[in-house]
Design a protein around this nucleic acid. Sequence first.
DNA 1: GCTTGTCAATACGCATGCGTATGGTGCTTT
DNA 2: AAAGCACCATACGCATGCGTATTGACAAGC
Lengths: 194, 194
Amino acid sequence: MVNSQKNDKEKLTAADWERGALELIAEQGVNAVAVESLARRMGITKGSFYWHFPNRQTLIEQALSRWLEHDERNLQILLDTITDPRERLIVFFRRSTQINQFTHDVYTALCFAPDHPLVEPVLAAVAERRTNYLSQAFRDLGMTDTAAEFRARLTYASYVGYLQLMQQEQAFEPENINFEPYLEHVIHTLIPTV
Amino acid sequence: MVNSQKNDKEKLTAADWERGALELIAEQGVNAVAVESLARRMGITKGSFYWHFPNRQTLIEQALSRWLEHDERNLQILLDTITDPRERLIVFFRRSTQINQFTHDVYTALCFAPDHPLVEPVLAAVAERRTNYLSQAFRDLGMTDTAAEFRARLTYASYVGYLQLMQQEQAFEPENINFEPYLEHVIHTLIPTV
DNA sequence: GCTTGTCAATACGCATGCGTATGGTGCTTT
DNA sequence: AAAGCACCATACGCATGCGTATTGACAAGC
């Protein structure tokens, strides 16, 4: 569960704190990132923290910035690997259901704090990247620009909503028997047939 | 903005506190419901609060319970008023875009705290009601039971996701020029043609 | 008119959380 | 070996927030 605890006499770096913060965000949300509790969790005191960071806000900023880059690379890998647009969309759906993927859990947590001033720009950036990704795929499948744009937004909304319902234990999870048929239905409904 | 302030010499009832709590939830989320700040907001001190309620948790419980009933009635009205299933679905979409509707804002706020022990059961109840509503409408349109069930879930997910994207300023709002065309697209994509 | 009940103000204790200040420990560098 | 630096511990001040305890204001009923 917590794999960022201090390995005994090892000294901590700023990156260690950022990783710890991201783990906390993934598990309990942005508001759960408190300096003292995070320090306890890492088996150290906050005296260390304030040596590495000027304040809590900077920690969160840098942690989110780190996550944003990580997420960027993930998407780029998809773009480089898969060329067929239909395949890209299907992969998008499948990936969105893989909870316990770390970067994915962080995103879900961020969605639950859209008002937070530090989270807002991150969400905006991610939303733009992903809708562009989707929009491009739909265009490649022969849709008009506006239709592709609309379908991308609808798809992204259903993706975000699925994440949310999953958190509420209100959606089919991959282990469920109905999951595959449901996914088939979604693909059939949202992806135009070639 | 704040319309639950004390009207001077008027005495407060438990219902007043519940209304105030719901307003706060709608505006700033469940976690923003703090006894002392809420009291200040209502132009009174917390001495009053702890006369009406044993603690903060009870306030939130009762406020949410009140909201749940209110939401129930809203849905029932729809069921009683509109008979055509296709029309019902379209109304569902249109209503979901009407922000600044009070009960609606509360629901959005609740979605942002799905882990909260008091919120969880409320979300579960609402999700079930609404997916049942959708599922029934899709069946009435001639879909098979399982297809209707899947389509209802997909529709509900896109609804929830739309709310979330709206909060992130990342969705077309009703004032936007593209809103109507977008809604047309959603209807065309998700509602089977008769 | 006096008591009683209802509602509210004030003051307190306790906990958590942020950020500062200051001192300590061990490794490095010279 | 002495000095300096990197990293951490401890103690403090301040704010917010929960819940309790005590007192006060004011109207209704007797």
